[in-house]
């Protein structure tokens, strides 16, 4: 009788084995370092939690309806901050993305510099930008608009540049060959290809910015974050419940609407 056996397992090469062991050692070392040196006061945290549980959790789920009016106005301000900020960013990001895209302006040098600048902008958390702008223009909602605008420009510029790099260049070449000038190529060859995706990303960024702008008030940049910090300082957890509910409802509605619009555009 013939013996059926499984095909031999592929042999791992020496290089792969060593690489895997090195990776495993690095990961284990990282975890040992982290868990040994981190200093969490468990006793105090648990004691606090037992003391505070009844003061916080039931009240959080029992919203203070009398604050609905104030919360609604703050939430409106939050939405307006996000709207103005993301629209500003979408407009600023267009020329930047043309600079950063490899197939448009200039050569590889300008494109690389453009991408570095956009990545650098993206590395700043929104709220850090908000701190800088609050110092610069005062503690008001406009500082929030500027923080959102600058923060979103980094991400949108990078996305836009990637979209431009992915367009069908045959159309552009055909137009060039038949004698179209730069402006004509831009309007008839490039823009129709990129507009839907640009709009889609801009609207998506508006969704993200709603979440971002709802916390900017923590550093004084307007919106509902201002109420969050007051409610937390006053231990007013009923009001915090109302605020939380408002954020959940508004973000859900805007996510839903934006998903519908984006599906229609693309």
């Amino acid at each position: 009788m013939e013996n059926y056996s499984l095909p031999p397992k592929p042999k791992n090469s020496m290089y792969k084995n060593i690489r895997n062991i090195v990776i495993a050692i690095l990961v284990i070392a990282m975890y040992v370092w982290t868990f040994v040196s981190i200093d969490i006061d468990w006793g105090r945290a648990i004691e606090r939690a037992i003391n505070n549980f009844n003061r916080v959790i039931p009240r959080l789920f029992n919203p203070d309806w009398s604050a609905t009016g104030d919360v609604a106005w703050s939430m409106l301000e939050t939405v307006l901050i996000a709207f103005a900020g993301s629209l500003m960013a979408a407009v600023i990001a267009v020329p930047l993305s043309f600079l950063a895209a490899r197939n448009m302006m200039g050569g590889i040098v300008i494109s690389t510099i453009g991408k570095w600048v956009l990545s650098a902008v993206r590395a700043f958390p929104d709220i850090i930008l908000a701190i800088l702008f609050v110092v610069a223009v005062g503690p008001n909602a406009f500082a929030g608009v500027l923080a959102i605008a600058i923060g979103s420009t980094g991400m949108l510029g990078k996305m836009f540049a990637e979209i431009i790099e992915s367009i069908d260049m045959n159309v552009v070449e055909a137009m060039e060959a038949s004698g179209a000038n730069k402006i004509q190529i831009l309007f008839y060859g490039v823009l129709p290809q990129i507009t839907p995706e640009f709009l889609s990303y801009a609207i998506y960024r508006f969704e993200v910015d709603i979440r971002a702008s709802s916390i900017l008030g923590i550093v004084g940049a307007g919106g509902i974050g201002t109420m969050i910090i007051f409610a937390s300082n006053n231990r007013n957890w009923n009001e915090m419940g109302t605020i939380l509910l408002a954020i959940i409802i508004v973000v859900t509605i805007i996510d839903f609407a934006s998903a519908r619009i984006r599906r229609k555009i693309v």
Binding site: I40, R44, A49, N52, V56, I57, I228, S232, M240, L244
Partner: peptide, 12 residues
């Protein structure tokens, strides 16, 4: 903010 209210200031 909510967890700080619950567990006090700290890493946890």
């Amino acid at each position: 903010v909510i967890f700080v209210g619950l567990f006090g200031i700290g890493l946890f």
